[in-house]
Amino acid sequence: MLPENISTFGHLVDNLILIIFVITLMVTVLAFGIIIYAVIRYNRNSNPHTTYKFGPFISKIIYLDAAMIVFDLIIAYASVSGWAHVIMRSRSDLISEHKEYVDVRIIGRQFFWSFNYAGLDNKMDTNDDFIIANKLVVPIDTLVLLNLTSGDVIHSFFAPHLRLKYDAIPGRSMDVWFKATKTGSYEIACAELCGAEHYRMKAKLEIVTKEQYKSWLNERSGALSVR
């Protein structure tokens, strides 16, 4: 059911959902089976007198509970390790790990996203920066560092294909990253209620090859220098 995953850390999210799905399916099917069987088997006419043959409650609960604790530990471990890999990363150690990177500053406003690109020199706050609304164009296989903030209310930057979602909160900025592994054009949505047109706050995410990205940048900055 999940949309196709095109980001490097996406598999962490998918595998975790799969692990939890398997565990919950097992527990639910087991529980439903026992309960439905109990209701049918121990019906009034088929079992007129209650059968009391059980030892103390503790002896039964111990190993069921142990199994549940083991499942919980598996889920907790997988989740925390995934979290450490995806969110708890500072910009510097990300840059050191992936040499080349692209820096984009995202500002969520009521009902559109504005993307500030660093321009040709890949340095923010230089005069070749440019801003595009509702379109995020990034090269493939390169680290993309996003700086999320909001101009008015709380929005949430949600790219389902990248398995990435983080809130854009006014007065705060948060660094998130992703690295795309497949070209194509995808969609970005807003996941936190931000007013009437919350459902229409769509932005286009385009993953292009490096050359296309270079030519797109030149063409953009070309337009700038003419001005």
Partner: peptide, 27 residues
């Protein structure tokens, strides 16, 4: 996240207890 996952244990005990109450009764 750890405390949230831990909170599934008490409710698991609760539902097992309900299940065992049903088992063997004349419903």
């Amino acid at each position: 996240s750890i405390t949230t996952i831990l909170i599934s244990i008490p409710f698991f005990i609760l539902s097992v207890a309900f299940g065992l109450t049903l088992w063997g009764g004349s419903i």
